[in-house]
Amino acid sequence: MIKNTSKLILLIFFLLGTLTYAQEKKKFSSIPNILKGIIPNGKIVFWVLVYNTYAKDQEISISGSKQDYTPQFSGFDLFPEEDSFYYIAYSSGGKMNYVTDVNGLKTFIGKVDNIQEAAIAATIEGYIVDEEFKDVAANYYEDTSNYYLDLGKLTSQECPYQKKHYTLTINKSTGAITNVKDNGAYIELYNKKCANNPRLMKIEKKEEPKDEPKKPAKSTKRK
Protein backbone atom coordinates (compact mmCIF):
# COMPACT_ATOMS: atom_id res chain seq x y z
CA MET A 1 0.00 0.00 0.00
CA ILE A 2 2.84 2.38 0.94
CA LYS A 3 4.72 1.52 -2.27
CA ASN A 4 1.63 2.22 -4.38
CA THR A 5 1.09 5.56 -2.60
CA SER A 6 4.72 6.53 -3.22
CA LYS A 7 4.43 5.64 -6.90
CA LEU A 8 1.25 7.72 -7.19
CA ILE A 9 2.94 10.72 -5.58
CA LEU A 10 5.93 10.41 -7.92
CA LEU A 11 3.59 10.16 -10.91
CA ILE A 12 1.74 13.32 -9.84
CA PHE A 13 5.00 15.25 -9.46
CA PHE A 14 6.18 13.99 -12.84
CA LEU A 15 2.98 15.11 -14.55
CA LEU A 16 3.09 18.50 -12.82
CA GLY A 17 6.71 18.94 -13.89
CA THR A 18 5.89 17.99 -17.47
CA LEU A 19 2.97 20.42 -17.55
CA THR A 20 5.09 23.25 -16.12
CA TYR A 21 7.84 22.58 -18.65
CA ALA A 22 5.35 22.48 -21.52
CA GLN A 23 3.96 25.88 -20.52
CA GLU A 24 7.32 27.58 -19.94
CA LYS A 25 7.48 30.61 -22.20
CA LYS A 26 10.27 30.78 -24.75
CA LYS A 27 11.40 33.90 -26.57
CA PHE A 28 11.67 34.14 -30.34
CA SER A 29 15.40 34.50 -31.03
CA SER A 30 15.19 36.67 -34.15
CA ILE A 31 13.06 37.48 -37.19
CA PRO A 32 15.36 35.65 -39.67
CA ASN A 33 15.26 32.49 -37.51
CA ILE A 34 11.47 32.59 -37.54
CA LEU A 35 11.48 32.73 -41.34
CA LYS A 36 14.11 29.97 -41.52
CA GLY A 37 11.58 27.70 -39.81
CA ILE A 38 9.27 27.69 -42.85
CA ILE A 39 8.36 24.22 -44.15
CA PRO A 40 7.10 24.81 -47.71
CA ASN A 41 3.79 23.41 -48.90
CA GLY A 42 4.07 20.95 -51.82
CA LYS A 43 7.09 19.55 -53.66
CA ILE A 44 9.82 22.21 -53.63
CA VAL A 45 13.16 21.22 -55.21
CA PHE A 46 15.02 24.33 -54.06
CA TRP A 47 14.18 27.52 -52.20
CA VAL A 48 16.07 30.50 -50.86
CA LEU A 49 15.02 33.19 -48.42
CA VAL A 50 16.52 36.57 -49.36
CA TYR A 51 16.71 39.70 -47.21
CA ASN A 52 17.04 42.97 -49.10
CA THR A 53 18.16 46.05 -47.21
CA TYR A 54 19.17 49.32 -48.86
CA ALA A 55 19.01 47.59 -52.28
CA LYS A 56 21.48 44.85 -51.29
CA ASP A 57 20.49 41.15 -51.21
CA GLN A 58 21.55 38.76 -48.47
CA GLU A 59 20.71 35.05 -48.64
CA ILE A 60 19.39 34.09 -45.20
CA SER A 61 18.54 30.44 -45.80
CA ILE A 62 19.02 27.97 -48.68
CA SER A 63 17.32 24.60 -49.01
CA GLY A 64 18.12 22.09 -51.78
CA SER A 65 20.64 22.35 -54.62
CA LYS A 66 21.13 26.01 -55.42
CA GLN A 67 19.76 27.26 -58.71
CA ASP A 68 19.97 30.56 -60.53
CA TYR A 69 17.21 33.03 -59.78
CA THR A 70 16.40 36.64 -60.63
CA PRO A 71 16.84 39.25 -57.87
CA GLN A 72 13.55 40.91 -56.92
CA PHE A 73 12.94 44.60 -56.31
CA SER A 74 9.99 44.20 -53.95
CA GLY A 75 8.85 41.73 -51.32
CA PHE A 76 6.90 41.14 -48.13
CA ASP A 77 7.57 43.11 -44.97
CA LEU A 78 5.79 41.37 -42.11
CA PHE A 79 8.11 42.87 -39.52
CA PRO A 80 8.29 46.59 -40.38
CA GLU A 81 11.78 47.94 -40.85
CA GLU A 82 12.93 50.90 -42.86
CA ASP A 83 14.21 50.26 -46.40
CA SER A 84 14.07 46.48 -46.20
CA PHE A 85 12.00 43.49 -47.30
CA TYR A 86 12.15 39.71 -47.76
CA TYR A 87 11.40 37.55 -50.77
CA ILE A 88 11.58 33.85 -51.56
CA ALA A 89 12.72 32.24 -54.79
CA TYR A 90 11.82 28.58 -55.26
CA SER A 91 11.88 25.88 -57.91
CA SER A 92 8.82 23.70 -58.44
CA GLY A 93 7.72 21.71 -61.48
CA GLY A 94 10.82 22.75 -63.41
CA LYS A 95 9.99 26.45 -63.04
CA MET A 96 11.43 29.22 -60.86
CA ASN A 97 8.78 31.05 -58.83
CA TYR A 98 8.86 34.01 -56.46
CA VAL A 99 7.07 34.98 -53.25
CA THR A 100 6.90 38.76 -52.97
CA ASP A 101 3.70 39.42 -50.99
CA VAL A 102 1.86 38.06 -47.95
CA ASN A 103 -0.74 36.18 -50.01
CA GLY A 104 2.01 34.32 -51.84
CA LEU A 105 3.74 33.62 -48.52
CA LYS A 106 0.53 32.20 -47.05
CA THR A 107 0.20 29.85 -50.04
CA PHE A 108 3.88 28.89 -49.87
CA ILE A 109 3.58 27.93 -46.18
CA GLY A 110 0.26 26.13 -46.52
CA LYS A 111 -0.62 24.25 -43.33
CA VAL A 112 0.90 25.62 -40.11
CA ASP A 113 3.54 23.01 -39.21
CA ASN A 114 5.41 24.61 -36.31
CA ILE A 115 5.62 27.59 -33.97
CA GLN A 116 7.58 29.65 -36.51
CA GLU A 117 4.85 29.27 -39.10
CA ALA A 118 2.26 30.07 -36.43
CA ALA A 119 4.07 33.36 -35.75
CA ILE A 120 4.22 34.16 -39.47
CA ALA A 121 0.51 33.36 -39.88
CA ALA A 122 -0.26 35.76 -37.01
CA THR A 123 1.82 38.55 -38.54
CA ILE A 124 -0.09 38.15 -41.80
CA GLU A 125 -3.17 39.01 -39.70
CA GLY A 126 -1.54 42.25 -38.47
CA TYR A 127 0.35 41.19 -35.33
CA ILE A 128 4.09 41.75 -34.85
CA VAL A 129 6.99 39.95 -33.21
CA ASP A 130 8.48 42.90 -31.34
CA GLU A 131 12.17 42.13 -30.85
CA GLU A 132 12.65 45.20 -28.64
CA PHE A 133 10.09 43.94 -26.10
CA LYS A 134 10.46 40.16 -26.11
CA ASP A 135 9.07 39.72 -22.59
CA VAL A 136 5.65 41.03 -23.60
CA ALA A 137 5.44 40.76 -27.39
CA ALA A 138 7.81 38.09 -28.71
CA ASN A 139 7.42 34.85 -26.77
CA TYR A 140 5.39 31.64 -26.80
CA TYR A 141 4.61 28.29 -25.27
CA GLU A 142 2.63 25.28 -26.48
CA ASP A 143 0.76 22.19 -25.41
CA THR A 144 -0.48 19.15 -27.31
CA SER A 145 -3.37 21.06 -28.94
CA ASN A 146 -2.37 24.71 -29.30
CA TYR A 147 0.35 27.31 -29.74
CA TYR A 148 0.15 30.32 -27.40
CA LEU A 149 1.89 33.43 -28.67
CA ASP A 150 2.44 36.78 -26.94
CA LEU A 151 2.66 39.29 -29.80
CA GLY A 152 2.32 43.02 -30.29
CA LYS A 153 0.14 45.12 -32.56
CA LEU A 154 0.44 48.73 -33.67
CA THR A 155 -2.96 50.17 -32.77
CA SER A 156 -2.32 53.87 -33.43
CA GLN A 157 0.24 55.84 -35.43
CA GLU A 158 -1.40 59.10 -34.47
CA CYS A 159 -1.71 60.83 -31.07
CA PRO A 160 -0.70 58.93 -29.06
CA TYR A 161 1.53 56.43 -30.88
CA GLN A 162 0.48 53.11 -29.30
CA LYS A 163 1.34 49.42 -29.26
CA LYS A 164 -0.74 46.79 -27.47
CA HIS A 165 0.13 43.19 -26.70
CA TYR A 166 -2.06 40.13 -27.06
CA THR A 167 -1.98 36.43 -26.27
CA LEU A 168 -3.09 34.44 -29.31
CA THR A 169 -4.24 30.82 -29.20
CA ILE A 170 -3.55 29.03 -32.49
CA ASN A 171 -4.94 25.54 -33.04
CA LYS A 172 -2.25 23.08 -34.16
CA SER A 173 -4.62 21.03 -36.29
CA THR A 174 -6.27 23.86 -38.23
CA GLY A 175 -3.78 26.72 -37.91
CA ALA A 176 -6.69 29.01 -37.00
CA ILE A 177 -6.57 31.71 -34.32
CA THR A 178 -9.19 30.48 -31.87
CA ASN A 179 -8.77 33.06 -29.10
CA VAL A 180 -7.28 36.54 -28.66
CA LYS A 181 -6.62 37.99 -25.19
CA ASP A 182 -6.02 41.76 -24.99
CA ASN A 183 -3.24 42.45 -22.46
CA GLY A 184 -3.34 46.23 -22.84
CA ALA A 185 -0.87 48.85 -24.06
CA TYR A 186 2.86 48.49 -23.50
CA ILE A 187 3.93 51.57 -25.46
CA GLU A 188 2.10 54.89 -25.47
CA LEU A 189 4.01 57.92 -26.73
CA TYR A 190 2.75 61.49 -26.81
CA ASN A 191 4.34 64.47 -28.51
CA LYS A 192 3.82 68.22 -28.37
CA LYS A 193 1.29 68.08 -31.23
CA CYS A 194 -1.00 65.70 -29.34
CA ALA A 195 -4.08 67.58 -28.17
CA ASN A 196 -4.70 64.82 -25.62
CA ASN A 197 -1.18 64.99 -24.17
CA PRO A 198 -1.62 64.71 -20.37
CA ARG A 199 1.20 67.20 -19.79
CA LEU A 200 -0.46 69.85 -21.93
CA MET A 201 -3.68 69.41 -19.98
CA LYS A 202 -1.91 70.45 -16.77
CA ILE A 203 -0.86 73.89 -18.00
CA GLU A 204 -1.71 76.44 -15.34
CA LYS A 205 -3.81 79.39 -16.37
CA LYS A 206 -2.25 82.74 -15.73
CA GLU A 207 -4.29 85.10 -13.56
CA GLU A 208 -5.39 88.29 -15.25
CA PRO A 209 -3.94 91.48 -13.62
CA LYS A 210 -6.41 93.25 -11.37
CA ASP A 211 -7.29 96.90 -12.02
CA GLU A 212 -5.63 99.21 -9.50
CA PRO A 213 -7.98 101.66 -7.63
CA LYS A 214 -7.96 105.15 -9.09
CA LYS A 215 -6.28 107.82 -6.98
CA PRO A 216 -8.41 110.94 -6.20
CA ALA A 217 -7.52 113.92 -8.35
CA LYS A 218 -5.56 116.73 -6.63
CA SER A 219 -7.45 120.02 -6.00
CA THR A 220 -6.24 122.96 -8.06
CA LYS A 221 -8.30 125.64 -6.21
CA ARG A 222 -6.37 128.67 -4.93
CA LYS A 223 -6.85 129.87 -1.36
Rank of each mutant, 00 (worst) to 15 (best):
residue 52 N to A: 03
residue 34 I to V: 11
residue 193 K to T: 06
residue 201 M to S: 14
residue 63 S to T: 12
residue 61 S to N: 06
residue 95 K to A: 06
residue 147 Y to T: 06
residue 170 I to M: 13
residue 185 A to W: 00
residue 135 D to H: 09
residue 212 E to M: 01
residue 103 N to M: 07
residue 206 K to S: 10
residue 64 G to H: 02
residue 172 K to M: 10
residue 151 L to D: 05
residue 13 F to S: 13
residue 83 D to F: 00
residue 40 P to H: 03
residue 164 K to G: 06
residue 174 T to P: 10
residue 40 P to K: 07
residue 17 G to V: 07
residue 158 E to Y: 13
residue 152 G to P: 02
residue 129 V to K: 01
residue 47 W to M: 03
residue 99 V to L: 13
residue 124 I to K: 12
residue 7 K to A: 12
residue 57 D to P: 04
residue 31 I to P: 00
residue 67 Q to T: 04
residue 161 Y to D: 10
residue 112 V to D: 09
residue 181 K to E: 14
residue 79 F to N: 15
residue 201 M to V: 05
residue 211 D to Y: 11
residue 83 D to H: 04
residue 168 L to H: 00
residue 179 N to Y: 00
residue 116 Q to M: 05
residue 58 Q to F: 11
residue 72 Q to P: 00
residue 103 N to V: 02
residue 54 Y to T: 05
residue 107 T to W: 07
residue 54 Y to V: 04
residue 183 N to Y: 03
residue 150 D to Y: 14
residue 119 A to M: 05
residue 44 I to Q: 11
residue 202 K to A: 08
residue 154 L to W: 04
residue 193 K to Y: 08
residue 97 N to W: 11
residue 144 T to R: 06
residue 55 A to Q: 05
residue 221 K to G: 06
residue 222 R to I: 03
residue 206 K to A: 09
residue 124 I to V: 15
residue 42 G to Y: 03
residue 120 I to E: 05
residue 161 Y to A: 13
residue 170 I to G: 01
residue 196 N to A: 11
residue 146 N to E: 03
residue 141 Y to L: 14
residue 153 K to D: 01
residue 48 V to F: 01
residue 196 N to S: 15
residue 42 G to E: 01
residue 54 Y to A: 02
residue 136 V to H: 12
residue 59 E to Q: 08
residue 44 I to H: 09
residue 205 K to D: 00
residue 198 P to T: 10
residue 91 S to A: 10
residue 109 I to C: 01
residue 96 M to C: 01
residue 140 Y to E: 02
residue 158 E to V: 08
residue 222 R to V: 07
residue 140 Y to K: 02
residue 5 T to K: 15
residue 131 E to I: 05
residue 56 K to Y: 06
residue 15 L to E: 07
residue 221 K to V: 07
residue 121 A to L: 12
residue 74 S to F: 02
residue 7 K to N: 15
residue 179 N to E: 00
residue 195 A to R: 02
residue 190 Y to M: 11
residue 138 A to G: 15
residue 18 T to Q: 00
residue 159 C to Q: 14
residue 81 E to L: 06
residue 2 I to C: 10
residue 210 K to L: 09
residue 6 S to M: 15
residue 99 V to R: 02
residue 212 E to Q: 07
residue 144 T to P: 03
residue 129 V to A: 08
residue 37 G to E: 09
residue 75 G to R: 05
residue 216 P to W: 09
residue 159 C to K: 15
residue 119 A to L: 13
residue 117 E to I: 04
residue 79 F to R: 07
residue 131 E to C: 00
residue 101 D to Y: 12
residue 157 Q to D: 12
residue 122 A to S: 14
residue 31 I to L: 15
residue 77 D to Q: 13
residue 211 D to C: 05
residue 220 T to G: 05
residue 31 I to V: 15
residue 85 F to L: 13
residue 19 L to Y: 12
residue 164 K to D: 08
residue 59 E to S: 11
residue 30 S to N: 10
